[in-house]
Design a binder for these strands. Structure first.
Length: 646
RNA sequence: GCCGUUGUAGCUCAGUGGUAGAGCACUUCCUUGGUAAGGAAGAGGUCGUGAGUUCAAUUCUCAUCAACGGCUCCA
């Protein structure tokens, strides 16, 4: 007998070699039907794996993340079985479950054959048939020699490549129905549990993620234990699409693009420009209080400066090609740093001048590959909330911490809670290639940044090989509604550029030293930040950011003069007001103002004129009753001044 | 840049080998109406661009541009 400890602390005794599935059955029949996998002593494995000694056990169902991942992984195998049936001889790479978007994919080499959208429906049907067979997922261990022989016979170079990195004792195969795959598992008990399947799309994916390699066909899908859950999931995706910043950006008149202007080049419409102005106002206020100095720099610079900075030739692929004037090459700037460094260098600096904080909403141009462009999130011309802080080594911690606090202050204003702080580190093996070759400086600055993060108590993750070439950084990662991950803001350390530009200051003991530079962009770029805000607020901007803050809706055109009077009063105190002068009924005007997501509506008619008041309606909340214009203005100005969340 | 899909009116989308439609928006008229769509009439497109096949192309083929779903990459 062995004793099994359950998550609630209960201990029960079972026969040696019992499976988690059998234990579930001993507890309840309905539970056994839901078990997808099991966690034995903290390790996720098959629910059909025998337990041979005392252990702690957690039965995993659809309600557990691990249960879902196992479920999707098993569905990927089921899809592979269907693909093999429809495309005999197809070779498989890997087929993992994924969290964002939910589901799974499998990378396949179909040879010369092509797969189309119509084939997906057919594959789905094959999968449903196979699911009905309730085929068990059977685990089998194999020696490396056997496994290599198996795939050599099959002529499968992909699985042979996978095998290279595995050793005897860690090679397992799983078989369900007629499909066998090299796989570490775990898997669900049988295919019958997969009741609802949707294959979502076909994409190309480079083998091993390297664009020099052959491109495999990647098929994405998602599955659920019931049709109802699949329907709900698809419904949710539809809802998410409604708050896609590209859709909202068009509907709300935020921005536009034009083929004649060029891909990735945003034109901000009046409504979008208001948001830009408000964001810049916030940044300027905040930075002014934090001791920043504003500068303005040109959009171009000569080749020589980018050779100095090191951006050329290494960054050349991301820059627009140069233009030649008077025998000199000029580049559109892809970053503001070199210009700011030149400003630092423009006059002798003393330690008394530090920290020097130079800020600019700088326009930069990057030649992003055409396929990478994405609405406002990825563009070729962007406006960056940039600043460079030149400080001594002693000042670094405090400066870096202050920048982090600025981030948190901003995030509070915008109610940004779903983000990941990522400490991006270098990779030692890429020193001198991707990163400046200063091993001890890397370690030192990374420790400095880590210390600041630890002291501030901000949760973060460390990720190697994500640093800038000149130093470690903190990235703020967010997700778009369709699940794509982006860096919203960045805070970078730079111990290299200062030296390259020959920047120095006189120290207290009359020697010279090179400043450490902090590159920071807490509001990222206007493009990405507003794209993010559109989705974050679902287009319902708080009052202070709303392009139109108040819409005045006269009951009929008899009351237009009174509406105009109120409109003038609002404009006078700086409230962005518009009047709906159309010959429409009040219901229609309200509907349109609500759809335009205007925060406040003022309704004026006979009653209001006689009482010398206005009727106020709030977006999403309805009628607030009547009040005087002066009272209303006072409330709004306070809400705007305090940048209230909504 | 690569793999795949798409491209028809300002927007959302039907449709056809014989030079095109709907709803909303827009204009005009009727209506002057109290908290999410009043009625009528009208105006709008060389069907992304270029070439080919054909008596005839918006429709079929090819190229090209752009957008979209991914990969790679990134603020």
């Amino acid at each position: 007998m062995i004793s099994i400890t359950f998550p609630d602390g209960a201990v029960r005794n079972y026969e040696k070699g019992i499976t988690p599935l059998a234990i579930a059955e001993s507890l309840s029949r309905s539970l056994a039907e839901k078990v997808l996998a099991a966690e034995i002593n903290g390790k996720v494995c098959d629910a059909t794996q025998p337990i041979r000694s005392d252990a702690s056990l957690r039965l995993l169902t659809w309600n557990d993340k691990e249960g879902q991942m196992t479920f999707w992984h098993s569905t990927a195998h089921l899809m592979a079985e269907a693909i093999e049936k429809k495309f005999p001889g197809a070779k498989f790479w890997v087929g993992p479950p994924i969290e964002n978007p939910k589901g799974f994919y499998y990378d396949v080499d179909l040879g010369d054959r092509k797969i189309s959208e119509e084939d997906l429906a057919e594959l789905e049907n094959i999968m449903k048939e196979l699911s009905k067979q309730k085929n068990p997922y059977i685990r089998k261990e194999m020696s490396k020699k056997e496994a290599v022989a198996y795939y050599t016979e099959k002529g499968d170079e992909y699985k042979l490549d996978l095998l290279q990195h595995l050793n005897d004792g860690e090679i397992t195969f799983y078989t369900q129905g007629n499909f066998t795959d090299l796989c570490r598992g775990p898997h669900i008990p049988h295919t019958g549990l997969i009741k609802a399947i949707k294959l979502t799309n076909i994409a190309g994916a480079y083998w091993k993620g390297d664009e020099k390699n052959k491109q495999l066909t990647r098929i994405y899908g998602v599955s659920f234990p019931s049709q109802k859950e699949l329907d709900e999931h698809l419904q949710m995706l539809e809802e998410a699409k409604k708050r896609d910043h590209r859709k909202l950006g068009k509907e709300l008149g935020i921005y536009t693009m034009d083929e004649d202007v060029g891909p990735g080049l945003i034109m901000w419409l009046p409504n979008g420009s208001v948001i830009i102005e408000e964001l810049e106002k916030l940044a300027k206020e905040t930075e002014q209080k934090a001791g920043y100095k504003r500068v303005v720099t040109p959009h171009l610079a000569k080749e020589s400066m980018y050779l100095t900075s090191g951006h050329l030739p290494y960054y050349a692929d991301s820059m627009f090609p140069p233009m030649e004037i008077d025998g000199e090459k000029y580049y559109l700037k892809a970053m503001n740093c070199p210009h700011h460094h030149k400003i630092f260098a423009s006059s002798p600096r003393s330690y008394r001048d530090l920290p020097l904080r130079l800020a600019e909403y700088g326009t930069v141009y990057r030649y992003e590959q055409s396929g990478e462009l994405f609405g406002l999130m990825r563009v070729r011309c962007m406006h960056m909330n940039d600043a460079h802080i030149y400080c001594t080594r002693e000042q670094f911690n405090e400066e870096f911490r202050a920048v982090n606090e600025m981030y948190l202050k901003y995030f509070k204003i915008f109610g940004i809670e779903k983000y990941v702080m990522r400490l991006s580190l270098h990779a030692p093996e890429k020193l001198g290639i991707k990163y400046v070759n200063e091993p001890e400086l890397w370690i030192e600055t990374e420790n400095m940044v880590r210390q600041v993060l630890k002291e501030s108590g901000i949760p973060y993750v460390e990720v190697p090989d994500e640093a800038a070439f000149y130093g470690p950084k903190i990235d703020v990662q967010i997700f778009s509604v369709i699940g794509r991950e982006f860096t919203l803001a960045t805070n970078q350390v730079d111990f290299s550029q200062g030296r390259r530009f020959g920047l120095h200051y006189t120290t207290a003991d009359n020697t010279t030293d090179t400043p450490i530079i902090i590159h920071r962009a807490p509001l990222g770029t206007h493009e990405r930040f507003i794209g993010f805000l559109l989705e974050h607020y679902a287009g319902k901007f708080p009052l202070w950011l709303s392009p139109v803050q108040v819409k005045i809706l006269p009951i009929s055109d008899k009351f237009l003069p009174y509406a105009k009077e109120i409109h003038e009063k609002l404009l006078l105190v700086g409230i962005r007001s518009e009047t709906d002068e159309r010959n429409e009924k009040i219901g229609k005007k309200i509907r349109d103002a609500e759809l335009a997501k205007v925060p406040y509506m003022i309704i004026t008619g006979e009653k209001e004129i006689s009482e010398n008041k206005i009727s106020v309606r709030k977006r999403g909340k309805g009628d607030l009753g009547s009040q005087s214009v002066e009272e209303f203005i006072k409330i709004l100005l306070k809400e705007i001044e305090e940048r209230t969340a909504d």
